[in-house]
Design a binder for these strands. Structure first.
Lengths: 181, 181
DNA sequence: TGGGTCATGTAACCTGTTACATGATTAG
DNA sequence: CTAATCATGTAACAGGTTACATGACCCA
C-alpha cells in the first residue's frame, strides 16, 4: 500500500517515467523503503486506471519511448490523506532475519555466531559512513530539508545502535565461552 | 522464505499443529518476525509436500481434529543449512512507513508532525516496558538462553534508540519553529 | 440468548521478487 | 568483438493479508 504513496510523493516534485521514478526511488528512499521496477510499473498502471495519475507518451529516437506520469488533483488529495493518517502500528512491525537466526542458534558453535555478528557490525559501520557522506549532501534549503535531515538522522541512530548491540552481544558470547571452561 | 525456517525452528522443540505454532510464533518471535495463520498453514502444507515435515491427524472430541507436524531429517538438514547461510544483506533491508511519511512531510504543519513523533515515542516507551517485563521471564538455563537474551537486548536497544531519535527530532522541529518567527 | 473466544482451517486477493525481452551505446 | 549499461517495460511466481467457515464452550 505504501509504495503507491512513495511514488505519488516523488511525482509531487515533477512528472516522471517509471524508469526515472525507479532511479530516484533508489537514490532517495531506498534506506527505509525498497521497491523494484516491476512493482513500480504495476502501481503506476493501477493508479492511472484509478485516475490518480495521467500519462503522456513521449517519443524518443535514441531511447525507447517512455510514459510520462503526472499526478492529478485526486492523486494529490489521496496522498495528503495518507500523509495525515495514523501509522504508528504499522511503523512498529519489522522483520529481522538476523534476529530470527540468532534466536535459533543455540545449537551452533559460539564462534560461528560471533563471526556472523562481527560481519554484521562491519557492514553497519560501512553503511553508517555511506549515510554520513551521501545523505548529508542533499541540502536544498527548502521546507523539506529539515525532514530529510530527520530521516538521515534516523539512519545514523539506527546503525550506531546496531553497532553497539553487535559489540555488546559479541562480548556476552565471549564471556560465556570463558565461563564454560 | 524465512517464515518456513521460523516454523522449522519451532518444530525443533517438538511436534505441533498449525494453530499451536501460530500461538507460539506470536509469543516468541513476533517482535522480529510476523506471520499470520493462513500463511503458516500454507507453508506447512508446502513443507509436507517437500518431505520436510510429516503430519499425523489427531482426533479430538471437544475440539476440531488437528494435524500434528513433525520435522524430518531432511527438514533438519535444510534448517541447519539456512542457519549457517549468510544473511547480512537481507538483514539490512527494512521498510519504515514513518520515515517514508516524514520524508514527504515538508508541506504539512510542523505541529502535526511533532504530534506524530510524540505518539511514536510514547508507543515505543510502552513497547520497551513490555519487552523488559515479558521477554526477560523466559529464563530456561539452556544453551538457547543466551541467544534469546541477545534478541531481547536488541529490542531494548532498538526502542531506546527510537525514543532518543524521536525526542531529538521533536526538539529540532521545535527549534526551527522558533527561528521562523 | 447473543456475543466473545477457543480451535481448526480454506479462499481470494494484494504485494513483492525474479526472470525475461528489446535495441541502442559505451567500455575494455 | 564481446560484455556491460542505459532505457524501457511485461510475465510468472512466491510471499503476505483479509475475509470467511464451523462448531463447541463460556460469560453476562
Amino acid at each position: 500500500m505504501s509504495l503507491k504513496f512513495g511514488l505519488l510523493g516523488l511525482l509531487h516534485y515533477g512528472s516522471m517515467s517509471g524508469y526515472e521514478l525507479d532511479k530516484i526511488f533508489k537514490d532517495s528512499l531506498n534506506f527505509f523503503w525498497q521497491a523494484n521496477r516491476s512493482q513500480i510499473y504495476r502501481e503506476l498502471n493501477k493508479m492511472e486506471d484509478e485516475g490518480w495519475l495521467t500519462a503522456k507518451i513521449v517519443f524518443q529516437t535514441e531511447k525507447p519511448n517512455k510514459k510520462l506520469y503526472t499526478i492529478t488533483d485526486e492523486g494529490r488529495k489521496g496522498f495528503e490523506k495518507w500523509l495525515s493518517a495514523d501509522c504508528i502500528d504499522d511503523a512498529l512491525f519489522t522483520r529481522n532475519i538476523l534476529l530470527l537466526k540468532l534466536f535459533f542458534s543455540g545449537d551452533r558453535e559460539h564462534k560461528d555466531n560471533i563471526k556472523m555478528l562481527e560481519k554484521f557490525q562491519e557492514r553497519c559501520e560501512k553503511e553508517l559512513l555511506d549515510i554520513q557522506e551521501t545523505c548529508r549532501n542533499r541540502c536544498d534549503n527548502s521546507k523539506d530539508e529539515i525532514y530529510w535531515d530527520i530521516t538521515a538522522d534516523y539512519g545514523e541512530y539506527y546503525y550506531n545502535m546496531c553497532i553497539d548491540w553487535a559489540r555488546d552481544s559479541i562480548n556476552k558470547l565471549k564471556k560465556s565461552n570463558i565461563q564454560k571452561r
